[in-house]
Design a protein around this nucleic acid. Structure first.
Lengths: 141, 141
DNA sequence: TTTCCTGCAAATTATTTGCAAGTGA
DNA sequence: TCACTTGCAAATAATTTGCAGGAAA
């Protein structure tokens, strides 16, 4: 069972930070939103719901969420960041269609394992990794 | 034998574009520069040499170089793009140290092969891919 | 000649920051 | 209370674009 709010609380406490209404709203939105989201999108979604949160706070909160390991920041080649929740989700990577923008997720245990080997060999302590494959999806070839 | 200028010429011709002094200067600099470079850096290097090329032209040319397959644009998590020449170089991926910024390159045939499989399975035509592993290098753990 | 190019400065986009006023523990 | 927060608006940073005057083919 994964409890994002509790995880976040634990993180905030450890840094002597507070769980505010704004932070909770961002966390919930990110967590219950399927897929990858952008800061801009988040601003609008929250605005359309009851809870308005300023752009600045959204960015500040996303950084906290990344730090706490609840969310990861990904680059889908759009010129701005995307975020996706990872807590309770298996790590996955992306195939990004350069034409229609579609993102296909995939998981490959073998790739993960090979990456671990590489890190060990270089005595590199992995924090996160990303495998992005750019090209054309089957509908756009 | 790899001839970047000829490759670029062929590409330019196919698009009815011209090989100008500026484009040639950027191409040469990128090609003979080992490692990853930034647009800003390129501007300075060229300026310090004989050939001044404006920032705008540098960005425009880098895009052409990427399009023509001579160079690839990579994200090393610095908030701006890096570029590296790929023509005549084996594809490689990166371990990026979040503390000192060091970038360790690695190549893994098995990972490459697995990626190809994944693309075939999804009928995805790969154009480029990137495996970036973020963490702490052995000097920063 | 004709089409493509370049530099410049202004525009855009994404993200960050300083600061005064507000709020959770 | 008091340290931590927020929103706002201004500041940054990277990159793009319009345009008028140059240059390859």
């Amino acid at each position: 069972m994964v409890r994002p709010v509790e995880t976040f609380l634990k993180y905030l406490d450890s840094k002597h930070l507070k769980l505010t209404r704004e932070r909770k709203a961002v966390l919930e939105e990110v967590f219950f939103h399927p897929g990858h989201l952008e800061a801009e999108e988040l601003t609008h979604t929250l605005r359309s719901k009851k809870s308005r949160v300023s752009r600045a706070t959204i960015y500040r909160t996303l950084e906290l969420l990344v730090d706490s390991g609840i969310v990861r920041k990904i680059d889908l080649g759009h010129g701005h960041s995307h975020y996706e929740h990872i807590l309770g989700h298996t790590h996955h990577d992306h195939l990004v269609c350069l034409k229609c923008g579609k993102v296909i997720e995939f998981t490959d245990k073998k790739i993960e394992r090979l990456q671990t080997n590489i890190c060990q060999k270089s005595r590199f302590q992995e924090i996160s990794h990303t495998v992005q494959i750019f090209g054309y999806c089957k509908d756009c070839r």
